[in-house]
């Protein structure tokens, strides 16, 4: 489903060049649940951004569903993001001036669904995260966990085949984190591919596979060992 070969990403500022990713290669199959761990600043978010078509890569190739991403223009990328990919951000990123309903509605609007279809999907996905009763609430009126669940509902409403999550539980307590993880597990079991960045190893173990990123490359260093240890 996702295949990166020798991808590198260089951020240039006036003074420094940062190699956020270098020679990054990874293959993820349809239906996998992959967790990504690694030290801070190692390039996890950068990888996710590139995987989710939020950023261009500097060199290398990236194929999603067999299509070479570098050949797509901005419009086509937007369409891919909109239809195939769901995002869950570490800091929720709900739109403060829209209520819960309208927040979940955002990607569906861009998708061009008709009103009844949108309503059905919004209600279903909010039902799934247990917030169906809060349609009229504004984001500021919700707790952090609730906001995150709205964000998940928003990511799921378009039924993406590919879910990208950047520390989805980073702002949540353990209980909350657990329930979010359960939710992700459920989603994965319906066939949705998930890539999740996290630095909590206990959570990482709930994935089928873990990749460990160090200095912008996939490393088969301590990650697998630790996982094995925890699993064992």
């Amino acid at each position: 489903m996702l295949q990166m070969n020798n991808v590198s990403k260089i951020y240039r500022t006036d003074t420094v060049e940062t190699h956020a990713l270098r020679e990054f290669s990874l293959k993820v199959e349809e239906g996998e649940f992959v967790s990504v761990t690694g030290p801070s600043g190692s390039g996890k978010t950068t990888f996710l951004n590139i995987a989710g078509l939020l950023e261009d890569l500097s060199s290398g190739t990236y194929e999603l569903d067999g299509r070479d991403i570098s050949k797509l223009n901005d419009r086509e990328r937007s369409k891919v993001r909109n239809e195939k990919i769901g995002f869950i951000f570490q800091s929720f990123n709900l739109i403060p001036e829209l209520n819960i309903f309208d927040n979940v509605d955002v990607p569906l609007r861009y998708r061009g669904f008709k009103a009844p279809e949108r309503r059905k999907r919004i209600e279903e996905s909010l039902e799934l995260v247990g917030l169906a009763s809060r349609l009229e609430h504004m984001p500021a009126q919700l707790s952090g966990g609730q906001q995150q669940r709205v964000a998940i509902a928003r990511a799921l409403a378009g039924e993406p085949r590919f879910l990208l999550a950047d520390e989805p539980t980073g702002n949540l307590d353990t209980n909350m984190a657990d329930s979010v993880m359960d939710l992700l597990g459920e989603i994965n079991s319906t066939g949705t591919t998930i890539i999740m960045v996290t630095h909590e190893l206990t959570l990482a173990t709930r994935a089928n596979r873990n990749i460990f990123v160090r200095d912008g490359s996939v490393s088969d260093g301590p990650g697998d060992l630790q996982l094995a240890a925890v699993a064992g």
Binding site: R81, N82, I95, P96, E97, P107, Y110
Partner: peptide, 16 residues
């Protein structure tokens, strides 16, 4: 700014 980024991430095209 941030909200616009989110919209873009959720699939909004530039013209949108």
């Amino acid at each position: 700014t941030r909200q616009i980024g989110v919209r873009r991430a959720l699939g909004a095209t530039r013209p949108e």
